[in-house]
């Protein structure tokens, strides 16, 4: 939170002193963005730590950037050709002292930022589990063309395009893709991670408090990409249990046959849930025991005739 406070302080300073006016513009943007449910309005600890680091790095750099910009404009104005008071030094092109300072300022700044990078990368490694007394909820994520499948192996249910998590419990996501690259991203929860075919990536995230937010693919994956967004609901633990019960109560079963149908390309899929899941399914997808999902097929109603040998025009 130090960074958020620093941002606020910078904002109030900017109002008083024109020297940080430029910083003010940037901070105004950050401020506007943070009240509107973006990455600077985190719902949980991972997002908060990521955002703090983002803001800390920005503030450190603004401390150098703003004076440098002011210096550039001041010198250009001071030494304008029409200013007879400015001294003209037509041969002056070297000063060891200035050179030393000129190399030191960026070197020192980058050493500082390098420290942030080093510490931050280790502390916020997405594969690292979150510290917590409660055991984490396991969620297996499969990106498909063009929807998200979330499997809850401990509960034996699954959802499409809808992620329900209990507030206050860390969630450990195992992520793979059935077809092409995607990135699993819930802006208000923090760290995004790629979903890649034949590989399992991991991320641990947590929502502190109940709320509803927005998640989406952050890596372009084809024609239906824009609808690869999903609703994320963080609910109290009791409500989560009730939700699992109701999901188990009705809906289709996700076996290999249902998966094969789901894996075909489709766009703008409305959220729904599966009452039971083949326990081996995620592993079979990730290890490609089930072959990669098909691309555009002539027989697929959502893709009839498209792209087949005609250069994409019907």
């Amino acid at each position: 939170m130090a960074g958020l406070q620093a941002a606020r302080r910078a904002w109030t300073r900017a109002c008083r002193c024109p020297a940080v006016g430029i910083a003010g513009v940037g901070m105004a943007g950050i401020g506007l963005a943070s009240c509107s449910g973006g990455v600077l309005d985190p719902l949980g600890p991972v997002g908060r730590d990521d955002a703090t680091l983002l803001i800390d790095a920005t503030v450190v750099m603004l401390a150098i950037v703003v004076p440098t910009i002011m210096l550039a404009f001041w010198i250009a104005w001071r030494y304008r050709a029409s200013n007879p008071k400015a001294e003209y030094l037509p041969y002056w092109s070297y000063s060891g002292r200035i050179e030393a300072v000129v190399w030191s300022i960026p070197v020192l700044t980058i050493m500082f930022i390098g420290g942030l990078i080093w510490i931050g990368s280790y502390r916020l490694d997405p594969f690292k589990p979150l510290p917590s007394k409660a055991p984490p909820l396991e969620v297996q994520v499969v990106s498909l063309d063009w929807k998200w499948l979330f499997i809850y192996p401990q509960q034996g249910v699954a959802t499409v395009n809808r992620l329900v998590v209990p507030a206050g419990t860390p969630v450990h996501f195992s992520i793979t893709s059935a077809s092409v690259f995607n990135a699993f991203f819930v802006p208000r929860l923090g760290s995004m991670v790629y979903a890649m075919p034949g590989m399992v990536s991991q991320v641990s995230l947590e929502a502190d408090r109940p709320g509803t937010t927005y998640g989406q693919s952050a890596h372009f994956s084809g024609d239906g990409f824009s609808d690869m967004h999903f609703q994320v609901q963080s609910v109290p633990a009791s409500e989560f249990a009730a939700w699992v019960r109701s999901a188990k109560g009705g809906g289709p079963v996700l076996d290999r046959k249902a998966y094969a149908e789901l894996a075909r390309q489709s766009q703008n899929v409305k959220p729904y849930s599966y009452s039971a899941v083949d326990a081996e399914l995620f592993g079979a997808v990730a290890m490609q025991q089930i072959p990669p999902a098909p691309g555009p097929e002539p027989g697929n109603p959502s893709h009839a005739g498209r792209e087949v040998g005609t250069g994409g025009h019907d």
Binding site: A76, Y79, A86, Y88, P90, I98, W118
Partner: peptide, 29 residues
Amino acid sequence: GISTSVIAVGTGVKIYNWIFTMYGGRVRL
């Protein structure tokens, strides 16, 4: 991450050198 930000040292030096090129000049805008 560090190798990337290190590039900013090179560009930073260049920017200061341009600024000091204007210093003591007759800058035609």
